[in-house]
């Protein structure tokens, strides 16, 4: 009896961890963009959706051409998804946000919502409104067999990939030249420009990085859920945004922490209470945390200057 309970707990724990790491991947894109230009990029969820679609289309095309080796399939479709999502992120910024750099704060938000509607309908029209089955790209790993009821292969891959990406991202931001430039731009755009940093390039780079992370998230969600449609980006976007705010928007460890907390809340909430109110748990937690910590868990607490 006890063992069953513990097993159930671990199942929920791992489920929450997987879900949370995907939220974290998408939330990173939000938080990085917000950190630099203080804009809620509402179309970020659509980038994630486009990443998933590109991977699916590439995999299908490869299969049709007779490529069946799983490793080739996974890597080629994954890389294509990342490249395309980055290209979309870059173009998105150039088209919808760059002309609005000096506009009132709400204007880019509206063009972001417009972009989100546009991209959703673009995919809807060009592809289909139905759910499309996402190919099972990853073959089951034999050594996970004994624990497969708790952690499947896809979960394992998701966790590993997320961990690797987090480490790479931390390295990128802390140690490299462009990472230093990104942090400088986030702190003070004018000063960064005076020091010879090409701020526009840094902003583009941030969008590209964030979009690439979202695409990785998209591919992994597709593999886990087994189906995608044009609307998946919207919900995921809102959840990831919640995660980003929960951790303190603009803070990179905050986004990861927020994502994980959100994942666990949903997983345990649905597992122990009721599955109808999955999203209610997420949002109630957000409201509670923000009431007690108005700038998120790891957000900078700025005191207003007079």
């Amino acid at each position: 009896m006890f063992h069953d309970k513990a097993g159930y707990f671990f199942e929920l724990f791992i489920g929450g961890l997987t879900k949370g790491s995907i939220y974290a991947l998408i939330a990173l894109g939000y938080t990085m963009v917000y950190g630099i230009i203080e804009l809620i990029n509402f179309a970020h969820g659509e980038i994630y959706m486009i990443g998933a679609f590109t991977a699916l289309i590439t995999a299908a095309a490869l299969t049709a051409f007779g490529v069946t080796h799983p490793l080739v399939l996974v890597s080629v479709s994954g890389i294509t998804a990342v490249v395309y999502a980055s290209a979309y992120g870059y173009t998105l910024e150039k088209v919808a946000y760059k002309p609005l750099r000096n506009a009132p704060r709400l204007s880019p938000l509206i063009s972001a919502i417009g972009m989100s509607i546009f991209l959703q309908n673009f995919v809807l029209l060009a592809q289909t409104s139905n759910y499309i089955p996402f190919p099972n790209l990853i073959p089951p790993l034999p050594f996970l067999e004994p624990v497969s009821h708790i952690m499947g292969t896809v979960d394992f891959i998701i966790l590993c990939t997320t961990a690797v990406i987090m480490i790479l991202l931390t390295f990128l931001i802390r140690k490299t030249r462009i990472g230093t430039a990104m942090r400088a731009t986030a702190q003070d755009k004018t000063m960064a420009r005076l020091l010879g940093i090409d701020v526009d390039r840094i902003i583009s780079f941030t969008f590209i990085t964030g979009s690439a992370l979202a695409a990785v998230g998209g591919v992994m969600v597709g593999s886990k859920m087994g189906q995608i449609n044009f609307y998946i980006g919207f919900i995921a976007g809102i959840k990831a945004f919640t995660a980003a705010v929960l951790g303190g928007i603009g803070s990179i460890p905050g986004a990861v922490l927020g994502g994980l907390i959100l994942g666990w809340t949903e997983s345990f909430g649905t597992g122990y209470l009721t599955s109808d109110y999955e999203d209610v748990f997420a949002f109630s937690l957000l409201v509670l945390i923000l009431i007690f910590k108005p700038s998120g868990l790891l957000g900078r607490n700025t005191t207003p200057k007079v």
Binding site: V95, A96, S107, S111, M115, F118, N121
Partner: peptide, 15 residues
């Protein structure tokens, strides 16, 4: 196409 146009129009007006 109307929702596509709608989203596009929102971006255009803002830009």
């Amino acid at each position: 196409y109307r929702m596509l146009v709608f989203g596009g129009a929102m971006i255009l007006v803002m830009v």
